[in-house]
């Protein structure tokens, strides 16, 4: 930041540069905040003993991830994330937690060291992915490619209904099948 300000002599340009650098570091600060909170809440999901605490932490994690979607320039996806995950899926989870008795689950101990092969597998997976990401130079892009300006929702809808019509139909059939299946599975046997 100091280097950038020092090299620019024109005060107007330097002011603009400061504004740009300030905006960039503000974006980084917001990203770090959302990422830290989402990782902490994700750890809470896994480590909490009470499933209700896990569900509430998962809700907070989804909110942080939707904020990260806003940072990524996809506000429509952020809204969908809040509607579907926080509005529908978490309510479903909380209803099921209310329907069944979780007191026994609260009492059972959670020992992370109980499953050694799974721990080794997880460690290997994490180390492998971190090494791939950190060593590869394909992920070093700092500026997003400028897409053609226009309405995001319109572009998305045109692409979805023109190029991806068949996957869209298949997804709606899958949702219908899931609806029918959930009703059939959760229905009490009538005689």
């Amino acid at each position: 930041m100091h280097l950038m300000c020092g090299t620019i002599a024109n005060p107007v340009d330097s002011g603009r540069a400061i504004v740009r650098v300030g905006a960039a570091s503000m974006g980084q600060g917001f990203f770090l905040l959302f990422a830290a909170v989402s990782v902490i809440t994700a750890l809470t999901v896994v480590l909490a003993r009470n499933p209700i605490h896990s569900a509430l932490a998962l809700m907070a994690c989804f909110l942080q991830i939707s904020a990260i979607f806003v940072l990524l320039g996809a506000p429509l996806l952020a809204v969908i994330q809040i509607f579907v995950y926080v509005g529908a899926i978490m309510v479903l989870f909380l209803f099921v937690i209310m329907m069944i008795d979780v007191r026994e689950a609260v009492l059972q101990r959670f020992v992370p060291g109980g499953n050694l092969p799974a721990l080794v597998l997880l460690g290997l997976l994490g180390i492998e992915m971190l090494a791939l990401v950190l060593w590869s130079d394909r992920f070093s892009a700092t500026e997003p490619v400028a897409v053609s300006s226009g309405d995001e929702v319109r572009q998305l809808g045109t692409t979805l209904f023109a190029d991806y019509l068949l996957p869209f139909e298949v997804a709606s059939v899958i949702l219908l099948a899931a609806l029918v299946g959930a009703i059939v599975l959760a229905r009490r046997e009538s005689g």
Partner: peptide, 17 residues
């Protein structure tokens, strides 16, 4: 996201049963 919603509905139905 759509497939996840379907998966959760079926999984929670199985869980209740």
């Amino acid at each position: 996201i759509a497939i996840t919603a379907a998966e959760v509905a079926v999984a929670l139905g199985i869980l209740v049963a």
